[in-house]
Structure formats: structure tokens, C-alpha cells
Amino acid sequence: MYSFKNDYTEGAHPRILQALIESNFDQEEGYGRDRFTLKAISLLKEKMANPNVDIHLVSGGTQTNLTAISAFLRPHEAVIATTAGHVFTHETGAIEATGHKVISVETEDGKLNPAKIIEVLNSHTDEHMVKPKLVYISNTTEIGSIYNKRELTDLKAFCEEYNLFLYMDGARLGSALCSVDNDLQLSDIPALVDAFYIGGTKNGALLGEALVITRNSLKEDFRFHLKQKGALLAKGRLLGIQFYELFRDDLFLDLAKHANKMANILSEGCRNAGFSFLIDSPSNQLFPIFPDTLIAELQKSYSFYVWEQIDATNSAVRLVTSWATKEEEVRAFVEEINRVGK
């Protein structure tokens, strides 16, 4: 059975595994003070053309989100996210467990905009309610859409006007940056958000995310928060080695481009077979709408999520491609939907 369930089914790109093996017996400092992590951080700052950001390597996305958000907020302050937002739907209440409410907003495209945020601000008016303080967005979003430069610029200006933090979850940032619809560069992002992370786990790394803090007031004592939340790894070198390998050349972007290319083949195949989509996604997550009978047949050979019931006989599924997705498997899937769907 071949999986289109997620983009972390496979282990890691062979170059990363080789780098880990070659450095295995090198003795290094712990807790992110090793030379590999320091080189990776320096390289990332260079890629972003910004030496003033603080960068911390963390093992996973949920841990990054809960550590960062709980560090940035005071006890009475809350997060604004879409109902599809990862911190709202798929982190087991991790943010709430740190004492901070997540206020959800309904959107059709998975993205927040100033008009949606102002509705929340207008309904939280005094000390009898939590105070909205941090705007949480994902790029790509949880349903595959992406933010363009104009949207982020408008969000940043709005957040500055209303004294809000803007935080971007970048678990699939590679896919967003390599989308055909994208007009952002990695170097643009530090000026447009207060903090964000670059996802390695879903783009070829064994594990790891790079949290980038751009707002000076949020940088102080962050390593204390990492330690308290169990996120400061003794063998931090394992993260540093991986991020250095991903960014010493264009491997990070090459892997994301491959995932998007495989998604484009899937998308074109589904459209040519006459199927529509729940959302028009330009990234490596697709949400085609199939008859339930076709889904049942496909599930005999392929693994994927049934995302949403559309009507009595049709459902949207989620198909995710990765850095390691095989083109022959993608084309075989397209052949299958043409064979069974007719």
C-alpha cells in the first residue's frame, strides 16, 4: 500500500543521514552550543539576509508552537487562529495547556485577514475576557493555501496598528516558497512577522524546526523557556547537522519543489479525470472530491485521509506528496482513478 497520507511517512533524505553518520564520533558541546548548530544558525541568517534575528532549533512543530506562544504571551493573553489552524485543531490543546485560550475564526480559504481579526478584537473589550494578543497563521495553511506578500504586508501593518504579535507556523514553508503562486522569498519573511519557523520535519529532515524570532522584545530569556518546556536537547547537534545540510545549498528548496511537482501531476490528473476540489491548493496538499465508491476502491491500494463528507455519495480526501514521493506511484494513482472512476 502506497501512502499519500502525509509528508513525513519516509525517514530523511540520504544526504542528511550520511552527514549524521560522518559526524557521529565527533565530540561536541551540548544544548545547541555545538559547531554544527552554530554553523546552521549562521547560514540561516545569511539566507535571510538578516543577522539580527534569533534562531533556535526545536525538535517538532507542536513543541515549537507551545514553547514560543507561551513564552510570548502574558497569562491573560490569547491567540487568534482559524478553525483549521493547527494550534486549534491538531495539537491536543497544547496551547490551552500552557494557560492561553485559542480564539477560532471561520474562514473558507484557511487564511486570516484584518477583517476577520477585527471581529475578534471588537468582541473582546474588557478585563472580563481574555485579551487577544497573538495572531497565528500557517504558510502553507492546513488546507494547502498560501499567503502572498501583499497579504502578509497587510497583516503585519494591521498587527502593528493594534499592538498584536504576528506568528507564522512554517511546518510546510518549503512548499509555500516553491509554489507557482508564491511571490515571497525567505529573506522577505523576517520583516513581515514577529516570529516564524522553518519546517524540516515535513521537508526531508529526520526531525526538526528552526524557530526564527525577529521582534526584539520576544527574544529575551528564550533559552530558559526552551529548557522549561523540554525543548532544549542535550544532543542539539542532531538538529544543527540537519539544518546545515538542508541549507548549505538548495536542498531544502529542491525537496519542496519535488513535492510540489508531484502534487501538480496529481492535481492535473484529477482535473483531467473530471473531478473537482474542495479548495484550489497550489501546494503539496490536495483535496479532490471523489465518489465514496471510488474512495473505497482506492483505499485497497493507497493510504490517505478522508477529509470531509460533501454529500450522501461524495467526499473530499486529502492527498499529500513529499520530498520522497515516487512519480511512478503518482501516475499509477492517476491511472487508477481513471480506471475505477469511469
Rank of each mutant, 00 (worst) to 15 (best):
G200F: 01
L286D: 02
V105K: 03
Q185E: 13
F304D: 07
E328N: 15
Y136N: 02
F252R: 00
N163H: 11
E22M: 12
A312E: 14
E29F: 12
L38C: 07
T107C: 13
K156V: 06
L251M: 09
N216C: 04
N182C: 15
V330H: 10
A324P: 06
E46I: 04
G236C: 11
R318C: 10
C270M: 13
F290Y: 15
A316C: 08
A49Q: 14
Y167E: 02
A234W: 11
L121H: 04
I118G: 08
P288F: 03
N272C: 09
S281I: 06
V320W: 04
T313D: 14
G32P: 09
D250W: 08
L44Y: 00
T201S: 14
L226W: 12
V212Q: 05
Q63K: 03
K39Y: 06
V58Q: 05
N272E: 15
Q228N: 15
Y244P: 02
R33T: 03
T141D: 02
G208F: 01
R318L: 11
L251C: 09
R237D: 10
T293K: 09
Y147P: 09
F277W: 10
E268W: 03
T62H: 07
A12C: 04
G341A: 15
L211H: 04
Q285N: 11
F158E: 03
H128P: 00
V340L: 15
G60N: 14
L134C: 01
I80Q: 01
E29N: 13
V317N: 07
L38D: 05
H56S: 12
A316L: 08
R318Y: 06
N264P: 01
N216P: 15
M48A: 02
D250V: 12
Q242C: 05
F304R: 00
R223K: 14
F290I: 10
L206N: 05
N6C: 09
